[in-house]
Computed example of a mutant assay.
Amino acid sequence: MRADIQEILLDEEALEKRVSELGAKISEEYDGMNPILIGILKGSGIFLSDLMRKITIPMEIDFLKASSYGSSAQSSGVVQLENDLSVDVRGRTIILVEDIVDTGNTLKYLLERFASLGAVEVKVCSLLNKAGRREQNVVADYIGFEIPDAFVVGYGLDFAQKYRNLPYIGILKKEIYQYRPKK
């Protein structure tokens, strides 16, 4: 898999340091509360696991699966909700945990959905922010790293369900994800 990576953008040490900082900040800002961390599957799984171990206050977790990418390298713009929450969010504080905010399509959909379900507050904690690709006017409240407009994989992020298990975040070589018609 390493041969498919053009460049390691964020190594294990940088990820661990920043996740610890985010956990400390969330712990401080939500002291005395019991927020629900909601991981957006599948990409946020590793990030959420590491983040919640750095949070020192009571909290709950849940997951949902939503995507606008499918197996493509480009967002379709249409958000698909494949599985939903197992908890009632009415009157609760939610922290959506995302692997990356890119176009903002998924995030906009989820923010509107949780507001309609009666959540008191919905904040967003995203490991990565790719502001240059934004199609929707959404902002993450907690951001791990600003990254360039490159296709990244690793630490939970994938291309066609591969590369999630890389312990770092790397830029995938273009020839791996670019469509080439058969001759």
Rank of each mutant, 00 (worst) to 15 (best):
D4F: 09
L111K: 11
I8N: 06
Y168I: 06
T93P: 00
E175P: 03
L81A: 15
R92G: 08
Q161C: 15
L117I: 07
K123H: 09
P167R: 12
T106M: 04
L127N: 01
I8L: 13
Y142W: 03
D141L: 04
D141C: 05
A160I: 12
Q136P: 03
E29G: 08
P167W: 06
D62H: 08
L111H: 06
E146R: 14
V97T: 02
V138L: 11
Y168M: 08
K42V: 13
I169S: 02
G154A: 06
V138D: 05
T56I: 03
R133G: 05
Y69L: 14
Y168A: 06
Q74S: 14
S20A: 15
K108D: 12
D99P: 04
N137P: 02
T103Y: 02
V153S: 03
A160M: 14
I40F: 10
K42F: 12
D88T: 14
I36N: 05
E13Y: 10
I61F: 05
A24K: 01
I147H: 01
D149E: 11
V120S: 13
R90L: 13
N83W: 12
V139D: 08
Q178Y: 07
G23D: 01
F159P: 04
A119E: 07
T106H: 05
I55T: 00
Y163S: 10
E12G: 08
Q6D: 15
I100K: 01
G144A: 06
V19F: 00
N105E: 09
L111C: 10
I57H: 03
A73I: 11
L85T: 12
L85Q: 11
I38N: 06
Y177C: 09
D149S: 07
E12F: 06
E21T: 00
Y69C: 14
P148M: 11
V120Q: 13
A24P: 00
L81E: 13
Y155G: 02
S72M: 11
F151R: 03
G144F: 01
E13N: 13
Y168P: 01
E12I: 10
G39C: 07
Y155L: 04
E12C: 09
I57Q: 02
R133F: 02
G45D: 14
L127D: 00
L107W: 02
P58M: 04
A119M: 08
Y69G: 13
N137K: 14
V97H: 00
K174C: 15
S20D: 04
